[in-house]
């Protein structure tokens, strides 16, 4: 069913009581042309489509341009500190597993200062939609090289060009124990972005989505000037991210079985052309908070007191 007809039907039949405005708060203060606008709009569309009540959504972020997103998305937002969005989100998941949880981070935020939390959150497999908005540069602090900056990038801390090869975060994520959902998309492919976020939204576990985007001010040339000249390949699988025929103008499609970790590892190791779509998916891994809650049940007050009293017996003299 096309989106227009569906929208029309839902409005008429009041199937979806929420409008896009329900997910909007203040006007974003990002730069003109920044990919962050597209990610915000895409999230709002997916939330509306899923008919989610905004009070039941938590959005956690770190520090950086992309981490301002919770200010502009009408949910319960927590704009935290640099690199530490994932521990906060883990706490939310343990405390309130019924809350839908979104995490937004930038490339420096997630891959550099938050690197340890990034690896371990994937291993915990908390049930959260984790979006990394990767523009290959530290932008809010005015152009310093990031872990994903291409070799030779000139920045304020590397005026003569970077010294190292860029990190391939997809390879790291797919190689991490207990990974359950890895996808890659880009802001210059809005339909693909929507489909990817939609797909990640419904995954029960940590859905890691790397979103490629340029920074119009400090990294306008990222990803072949924002996709104009960027070699990519769309991963094709009937259970993957749908490939709109218009997308094929940007790059070819290639058959891929995202349920096969060995195939996924091969794809993840490749950066040129960049694999776009669902790279790995294992829907059967339990989320950390579900494991923990299945083993810890709060007893009623009387049982609680009785158990505490029995504990005291152990130390009685």
């Amino acid at each position: 069913m096309s989106t227009i007809i569906q929208d029309c039907l839902e409005e008429t039949c009041a199937i979806n009581p929420h409008s896009i405005e329900d997910y909007q708060s203040e006007v974003p203060r990002w730069c003109k042309g920044c990919g962050d606008h597209g990610v915000l709009a895409s999230l709002q569309r997916v939330m509306r489509k899923n008919n989610v009540d905004p009070e039941n959504v938590v959005t956690v972020s770190g520090i950086g341009c992309s981490s301002r997103l919770p200010h502009y998305l009408r949910t319960y937002g927590f704009h935290g500190i640099h690199g530490r969005a994932l521990p906060i989100a883990t706490g939310v998941r343990l405390a309130r597993p019924e809350m839908k949880t979104i995490v937004t981070m930038g490339d420096g935020d997630c891959f550099s200062i938050g690197g340890n939390h990034w690896l371990h959150a994937i291993r915990y497999n908390i049930n959260a939609l984790v979006l990394v908005l990767d523009n290959e540069i530290y932008a809010l602090t005015k152009m310093q090289v990031s872990p994903t900056s291409p070799a030779g990038t000139r920045s304020n801390t590397t005026p003569r060009g970077t010294y190292l090869q860029p990190m391939n975060p997809i390879g790291i994520v797919v190689g991490m124990t207990n990974v359950s959902f890895v996808a890659q998309t880009a802001t210059w492919l809005p339909a693909h972005l929507d489909e990817t976020i939609e797909r990640a939204w419904s995954h029960n576990g940590l859905s890691f989505v790397r979103i490629l985007q340029r920074c119009p001010v400090f990294m306008p040339k990222a990803y072949g000037e924002g996709g104009l000249n960027f070699p990519l390949v769309f991963l094709d699988n009937e259970d993957g991210i749908p490939i709109n025929p218009a997308l094929l103008k940007r790059g070819p499609a290639e058959a891929h079985n995202q349920r096969d970790i060995n195939e996924a590892l091969k794809v993840a190791a490749r950066v040129d052309p960049a694999p776009m779509g669902l790279i790995y998916h294992n829907p059967d891994l339990p989320a950390y908070e579900d494991i923990r809650h299945s083993r810890a049940k709060r007893p009623d007050h009387e049982t609680f007191l009785d158990r505490l009293d029995k504990v005291m017996d152990r130390y009685a003299v």
Binding site: F78, P87, I88, T90, G91, L94, M99
Partner: peptide, 15 residues
């Protein structure tokens, strides 16, 4: 760092 972050997140979420 994560240890306090998790506690803070849980507390903010109401626990």
């Amino acid at each position: 760092i994560a240890a306090i972050g998790v506690a803070l997140g849980a507390s903010w979420a109401g626990k």
